[in-house]
Design a protein around this nucleic acid. Structure first.
Lengths: 135, 135
DNA sequence: ACAATAGTTAACCTTATCGTTCATCATTAT
DNA sequence: ATAATGATGAACGATAAGGTTAACTATTGT
């Protein structure tokens, strides 16, 4: 069972995403990845450990030489994350629904998405209108 | 243009995902969110700043009281991230293709996914077979 | 004018992260 | 046996994240 926190933390590092991009093409050895990303092997080893612990990567396939660890990508955590993202992406329709039930009793004809934006009505105050947004 | 690094880093915090989950339903005020997630307002303010900077959230809609900042969700960074994820998810077919072109000249009948796994052949060594995996 | 409210910023502390170098373990080659 | 290789582990330093309290700005109410 993939953990969103772990998965996101693992992916929130360019080096580890680099690993993922490399493994996307084909399984590779640890040192090969370290070299490709210009990083010491210990550093890469730790990145790989993180990726392993989150299940984004597995090691297997002893390459005829038991010294080398072949790493390959594993899809499950990524699919799980995508599932969560799609769920979140439903926010727009969710807000539409919420808006609907909040405004009307059960009126069957409220389907313009512009309606949701209309929720930001102008302040009734006639004052200087405050700046909000100082870059 | 949403930045993957920023987006992932922003999402890789349970508090900020909590904010997202709250805003999924409807726009809310900063203090409301802070209270819902049992966190001091300054802490939440910084989380909101992070979310703002990554474009995951925008503030608008002065709620008749110019003191309150209404926060609402913004879909673009999430969609961008989902796009990347789907791209990564293509790794399996990519590896199939790579395997195909590596093994055969152009033989038109190589469509068992088990083939890709078959790449992990047994070591020719007859030794104790090394442990690999010490939990 | 004064106090109260919503929100942010600043200063501080604690903890975690990332990379490096050095040491260690396991496996293969001479 | 000894050396060389692939990978990991441990200790160190630098940097950034996340929380708290206190101070500050802006707006509203009395």
């Amino acid at each position: 069972m993939p953990d969103l926190d772990q998965t996101l933390l693992a992916l929130a590092d360019p080096a580890r995403r680099g690993v993922i991009d490399l493994l996307r093409e084909k399984p590779r050895r640890a040192s090969e990845i370290a070299h490709a990303l210009r990083m010491s092997r210990p550093a890469m080893s730790r990145h790989l450990r993180v990726l392993r612990q989150t299940g984004l990567v597995v090691q297997d396939g002893i390459d005829a030489d038991a010294r080398v660890r072949m790493y390959r990508l594993r899809g499950e955590p990524i699919e799980h994350l995508r599932g969560w993202l799609e769920e979140v992406e439903g926010f727009w329709t969710a807000q539409l629904a919420s808006f609907k039930t909040r405004v009307e009793g059960s009126n069957p004809k409220p389907n313009r998405e512009a309606r949701a934006v209309a929720a930001s009505r102008a302040p009734k105050s006639t004052r200087p209108a405050s700046r909000l947004q100082k870059p």
